[in-house]
Structure formats: C-alpha cells, structure tokens
C-alpha cells in the first residue's frame, strides 16, 4: 500500500495534488489540491461546469485522472480501483436505480455486487430500508416512488457495503423542501456515526447545514477553501442590503449607491450591497432618492461568498 509515500497524510481519506481531468480539448479539472480527513463532511461547491462531478468521479474510481496524484483511503484509484470501491459508497447525480427490481431487491442485488453473502445482504436491506424510511415500500417497484424516496433509496444503496466514505453528487437537487430536510437529517446521522461525507452541491443552505469544510470550485480550479463561517468572514461583509427593482431597471441605480457599500452585486432583479451595517446603508440609500420596490436587511450567507467568488462582481 502506498500510504507511506511522501507528501500524503496518513489520516486523510482523500488526498489530491495537482489533480487534473481532461476530456479531449476540454480541461474540466485544472490542477487542484485538497485533503479530506476521516469523519469530516466535505463539500465541493461551484456553478455548473466547475469540475465538481469530474472530481467526484475520479475519487469514486470511475474516471481515470489525466494528471496529478490522487489517493483514496491511501490507495491509488488507477491501480486499486476495486479495492477502493469496496470501501466507499456512491450516490450519483441522476438516480440509476435498477428499475426492473423492487426496493428490497435493489439493495440486496447491489450488496451482492460487492461480494457480500446472501444472508448479510438480506439483513442489511432490512436495516437500510428502515434507515431510509422505505420499509413500507419494501416490495414495491422503484418506478412509482417519489423523487425523494428514490433519492433515499439511492443513498441507502450507497451504504450497503458499510462504506467508510460516502460520495454524494448533488444529493438534494430536484427535491421538495420536506424531502430535502429529511435527507439532511439522515446524512447528519450518518456523519454522527463516523462516515466521511463528500458531497457536491450548488445549494448554499445545504453546504451550510452539512459541511464542516468546503472548497469552492470555478472553471476547474479551487478558488476558496474553509469552513462555512470562515468563508463568510473572509469573503463577505457582515450584512447585506438587498434592493429590489423592476427587472431590468436595477443597473440604473448602481452608480448612485456603489460608494455606499464595500461591494455591489447586480442580480437580474436586485442589487446586493455588502456592508458592515445594512440599516445605516439603507438610510443613506433613501437619502439619495433611490426608491426600490422593496428592501431587505440580512446577514451574509455562503451564497454571497459564492456570488463573490464565481459570479461577476461589479465593485471589489
């Protein structure tokens, strides 16, 4: 095993150095460094096309890297793919459940692909259906299940081999709020039980809820790294003043307000003014006769960090 190779942390579950992925002429991942510690919930954030899924697939040993080094559980995916995959769980972005099998059969059959015994997968399926709250649908076909149920089944399936690491690619995309909260709760319980979680998302609330640490990716590179709170502190102001205008008219007011804030972000229907004290800024905005349809004072979130790092900032 290559655990002792220079430069790799023994405790790291995943460790990447200068990791690259190229598809023909397009370079999806352009040399990234990161480490994921055991038991951590680690997030990959970024807009579509940032290279998150490509990175996940390389960790999952289902996509060979084209440059750099990568170790998963101390092993090289290029040479130890099956051994690594035996110890990780994968929940893909689009569900690829076995539509010809029932809920229970999906779990049992998938467990068998891991080389597990029949008796083991029989018990495991019961336990996982309990965990995913699917016990009453055990012998139903998969097709008619709701989106949330299918996603829960996909997560349950990813746990069939008791993985040390669970990879989740956009776990709650397309789900309604209730389904998302139930999923978050289940993922939190997994984390509590010691499973390392690695997830991609472009939902900032999800990242704040679940991740101990995250990296923001854009254009195949890591542009920021830290805890959710640390990133907010580093890349945003304490408060934000949101001014809403008729869509399309918001740009007219930029010059009137831009000196009132540290930074102004222009969204299609509103301006975001980044400032230490949003109430005071709001007062000065109205002094200048700028009359938005509505205004809102709030604290900075990860979303603001995201806009700053991956969006087009007007004033920096």
């Amino acid at each position: 095993m290559s655990r002792t190779e220079a430069g790799f942390d023994d405790t790291a579950v995943v460790s990447a150095r200068g990791l690259k992925k190229r598809f023909d002429s397009f370079e999806a991942v352009r040399g990234i460094d990161f480490e994921v510690a055991r038991g951590e919930a680690f997030g990959l954030l970024g807009p579509n096309g940032a290279g998150k899924s490509s990175t996940m697939r390389m960790i999952a040993c289902t996509s060979p890297r084209t440059g750099g080094t990568l170790r998963v559980l101390g092993m090289d995916p290029q040479t130890h793919g099956p051994a690594i995959r035996a110890r990780i769980g994968t929940v893909p972005q689009t569900d690829n459940l076995d539509m010809e099998l029932t809920v229970r059969q999906n779990l049992q059959t998938y467990g068998r692909y891991f080389g597990l015994s029949r008796a083991h997968v029989r018990d495991k399926a019961v336990e996982l259906m309990e965990f995913a709250r699917l016990s009453d649908r055990a012998d139903d076909e998969v097709q008619p299940l709701s989106g949330g149920m299918k996603r829960r089944l996909a997560i349950a399936r990813g746990l069939v081999n008791d993985p040390e690491v669970l990879l989740l690619d956009e776990p709650t995309t397309g789900l309604d709020p209730q389904a998302r909260h139930l999923l978050w709760e289940r993922l939190f319980r997994l984390k509590q039980s010691g499973v390392t979680l690695i997830l991609t998302t472009h939902y900032m609330d999800e990242a704040e809820q679940l991740c101990d640490r995250l990296v923001v990716m854009d254009g195949g590179l890591i542009v920021a790294e830290g805890s959710p709170a640390g990133l907010i502190e580093q890349y945003s102001t304490r408060e934000v003043l949101e001014l809403r205008f008729h869509p399309g008219t918001q740009t007219r007011y930029v010059s009137a307000v831009e000196d009132l804030a540290e930074r102004v972000e222009v969204l299609p229907d509103r301006l975001l003014l980044y400032t230490k004290n949003a109430d005071a800024t709001a007062a000065r905005v109205s002094e200048r006769d700028v009359r938005p349809l509505s205004s809102l004072v709030r604290r900075s979130t990860l979303e603001d960090v995201f806009l700053r790092l991956t969006g087009r900032t007007l004033v920096d």
Partner: peptide, 19 residues
C-alpha cells in the same frame, strides 16, 4: 462474502464488515 454483522439498534448503518 463477509458473515452477517450485527444490526445497530439506532438504525444507523455503521457495522463495518472487514473488507
């Protein structure tokens, strides 16, 4: 494969077969 492992009471699957 591995022998059946115990089912955790909490319903959180963390029993880990020795792979």
């Amino acid at each position: 494969g591995t022998p059946p492992t115990r089912i955790p009471a909490a319903g959180v699957p963390h029993a880990r077969p020795a792979v």
